[in-house]
Amino acid sequence: MAAVSMEHGLILAGVLFALGLIGVLVRRNIIFMLMSIEVMLNASGLAFVVAGSNWGTADGQVMFIFILTMAAAEVAVGLALVLQLYRRFKTLDVDAASKMRG
């Protein structure tokens, strides 16, 4: 079992980010897209923590706390949008909301 270097942690973050991106691109259910965005934010936070741990500073963890704050605000607004979408279109399919109404 090889020792864990910074590259391994960053590769793991990259894999998770790619999985989240695939989720956003492939799924059309808006709740799944929001969950994939959460996965992507989490992966970027992991990259920050890995880098901060590599150099032994607290900056990476501070950045993770900021990402956490942003994710909380984003998911609150996003879920309110999900409720609005469901009320107007009676579906969770984002393609139903592809037309703008001025």
Partner: peptide, 29 residues
């Protein structure tokens, strides 16, 4: 990785608060 504070925040905020928001919305829908 040596970041115990962030690990605790991850459990409390992500797995606790944000997931509860998701579950609320799923139940409301």
């Amino acid at each position: 990785l040596g970041a115990p504070f962030v690990a605790a925040l991850e459990v409390i905020v992500y797995a606790g608060a944000i997931m509860v928001l998701f579950i609320f919305v799923v139940m409301m829908l």
